[in-house]
Simulated scan of single mutants.
Amino acid sequence: MATSKFLVAALLLSAFLLQLVQADQTVYSEFRSLHNCASACAARCRLASRQKMCHRACGTCCARCNCVPPGTSGNQEMCPCYYKMTTHGGRRKCP
C-alpha cells in the first residue's frame, strides 16, 4: 500500500517537473525570437523618419512572420509573409 502511494507521488512529481522544463524552454525560445526581432527591427528602422511607429509595426510583423527582410527598405521577397501583411485599409503594414 505504501509502495503504491510512493509510486503515484513519484509519477505526479515527474509529470510536474517535465511540465516545468517544457514551459521554461518555451519561454526561452519566445524570448530569443523577440530579442532577434528587436535587433532586426532596429537595423530595419534605423533610417526611418518615424522611428517609434516603424519599430512597432516591424515588431508586430516579425512576431507574426518570424523574419525581417535585410536592409532599411525593400527586399520584401526575402520574407514573403512580411511583404504580404496589410493594414485594414489595404496598405502594407510592414516597413
Results as ranks from 00 to 15, higher is better:
S14L: 14
R91M: 13
A40D: 12
A23F: 10
C67F: 00
K5Q: 14
R44L: 02
Q19I: 02
R46Y: 11
M53I: 15
A42H: 04
N66Q: 07
L34T: 12
Q22R: 15
N75F: 00
G90P: 08
N66M: 02
A48H: 00
S33E: 13
P95S: 05
L13E: 02
K5H: 10
A2R: 09
G90V: 05
G71A: 07
H55T: 10
L17N: 09
P70S: 13
L18W: 14
A9S: 05
K84H: 11
Q25K: 15
C45E: 02
C65Y: 00
R64E: 05
M85K: 04
E30Q: 15
K84D: 08
C41S: 06
S29T: 15
T3C: 06
L17V: 11
A15P: 03
V68W: 01
S29R: 15
R32A: 15
S4M: 15
S39T: 15
S39Y: 07
A63C: 12
E77R: 07
S4P: 05
Q19S: 11
N66L: 09
P69N: 07
N75R: 05
S14Q: 10
T86E: 08
A9Q: 09
L18E: 10
K52N: 13
A2F: 02
R50D: 11
A9M: 09
E30D: 07
L47F: 13
K5M: 09
G71F: 04
C54Q: 01
K84W: 03
C54E: 00
N75E: 02
G89C: 07
C67D: 04
Q25A: 09
C62G: 04
A23W: 12
A23D: 14
C62P: 03
R32T: 14
S29H: 14
A43E: 14
A23G: 03
T86C: 01
C67L: 06
A38T: 11
R56Y: 14
A43L: 13
G59S: 11
C37V: 06
K5W: 09
K93T: 08
A10H: 08
H55E: 11
M85W: 00
L20H: 06
R32I: 10
F16Y: 12
K5Y: 11
T3N: 10
C79W: 00
C79T: 05
A48N: 07
L12A: 07
C81L: 04
P69S: 07
S73F: 01
K93G: 03
Y82R: 00
G74L: 01
L47S: 12
K5N: 12
R92L: 04
R50I: 04
A2W: 08
A38W: 07
P70I: 08
Q19V: 05
T3M: 08
L47R: 12
C79E: 01
L34I: 08
E77D: 15
Q25S: 13
P70E: 08
M53F: 15
T60M: 05
A15V: 12
E77C: 09
T87F: 04
Y83N: 02
V68I: 12
C65D: 01
G89S: 15
N66D: 06
M1S: 08
